[in-house]
Design a protein around this nucleic acid. Structure first.
Lengths: 226, 226
DNA sequence: CGGAACGTTGATAGCTATCAATCGACGTGG
DNA sequence: CCACGTCGATTGATAGCTATCAACGTTCCG
């Protein structure tokens, strides 16, 4: 990862100093009709990209956590999905960052970071595909927990293998392609196996080795060339 | 979509004129250990990004068709998956294109096209997530066929709702998260319903309206700003 | 205190996987 | 030219994972 120049660091400092927006739980940060909203970065809270089928089935395509953006691609907007806040979400405007990333000769470090973030987003989508395509309910749940542990850890939200976990069982079902009832039973089994503790919206991984045995999770390793 | 300048068009013409590489069916265009190969664009043939689990389960994360690239993100390399040729695949080197895309002030049209391609790749991954998470076997199959019809159509490979379809039933299973046996039965049902014809590696969509009724597919609509 | 949201439990149904076998097409070697 | 092996497709029987339905418990809050 390229170090940022003093100039870039200063730039980012100013970019992050803008006023934050607040989004209530269940509110939509992004609608289907796709007006061209400015890019936003999540400062705190969890959100999810949601797709709904005609008959009401819901799929949470991806979770969006602090440090991540709703729109990893420069200046491109796509619709067909919405982004919904799960908890209270705080965002900052990312326009300045995107503009800077569009001038790689001037801001090489920022351009690189934006490209890496987009690739990271893609790697996580691929992980979600594997979960849904070829893993059992038990494995999906564990793999997701390991992924979230990794992602939260990257932004300092994990302490003693424990972190805030604001997903309802219904949300977990929509994320993992399972029914609420089955999510409930899967969680109970994990608790009974003493692999996790989950209560009051906080998840603790009690046995990392045991969890890794149920479902491997490899953090995406991204490398930037040049 | 921004028009390319004459300069850019000329540039792309030279970029595509390089020698093509050939890849035999089942050969790997990209390995896990991730040496930093140059970016490649597929000129003809089908390939798939594959992830394998410890116990041998396989998931085809995405299909890669003519006009698409294995690595949509500029200069970023990630591993954990491989890319395998399904048919004979022909590729050209995309290094020059990436370099040009890295100079948006000089080559705005190319930079935009590369960004749109990356967003397109992401939209298709999202579609795959929805398929695997919330659709039945029947719906998955139809949705996939509609997506492939759309993608092939975009590069002129569709004639009379008919196009080359080189996937074995095993590959379809690994792509859609189904067993081979169930893929077979699903296909038979679709044939029996006179929705499709599939033989000799060619798929014909016999009833677009009927297919759309089974599983909607909306092509990703991407817009570029500025 | 009533209600809403979320979590839990038991019974049953159903979709899809697995197992096993057969068949056809194709390519190769004797 | 034909036997043989391989790969892909097909079929039938059975098992199993997960969904659905329905009811109840719990927590929280206006």
């Amino acid at each position: 990862m390229a170090a940022l120049s003093a100039d870039e660091a200063d730039f980012l400092h100013r970019a992050g100093a803008g006023a934050a927006s607040l989004w209530a739980p269940r509110s939509l940060l992004e609608h289907t009709p796709g007006e061209f909203a400015s890019p936003r970065y999540i400062i705190s809270g969890w959100a999810a990209r949601v797709r709904e089928l005609r008959d009401g089935r819901r799929q949470l395509v991806q979770l969006l956590l602090p440090g991540e953006t709703l729109t990893p691609h420069l200046n491109v907007r796509q619709d067909g999905s919405t982004v919904q806040a799960i908890t209270l979400v705080r965002t900052v405007d990312g326009t300045a960052i995107r503009v800077a990333a569009g001038e790689p000769s001037k801001y090489p470090g920022i351009a690189e970071a934006v490209a890496l973030a987009a690739a990271h987003d893609r790697a996580l989508l691929m992980e979600q595909v594997v979960r849904l395509g070829r893993q059992t309910a038990h494995e999906r749940m564990v793999n997701l927990m390991l992924e979230l542990h990794y992602r939260c850890s990257a932004v300092g939200l994990v302490h003693d293998e424990s972190f805030e976990f604001p997903l309802t069982q219904e949300a977990l079902g929509d994320l993992l392609g399972l029914s609420v009832v089955h999510v409930n039973r899967t969680l109970q089994l994990l608790r009974q196996q003493e692999l996790i503790q989950l209560k009051h919206g906080r998840l603790t991984l009690l046995n990392m080795a045991g969890l890794a045995e149920v479902a491997e999770f490899k953090p995406p390793r991204l490398t930037y060339a040049n």
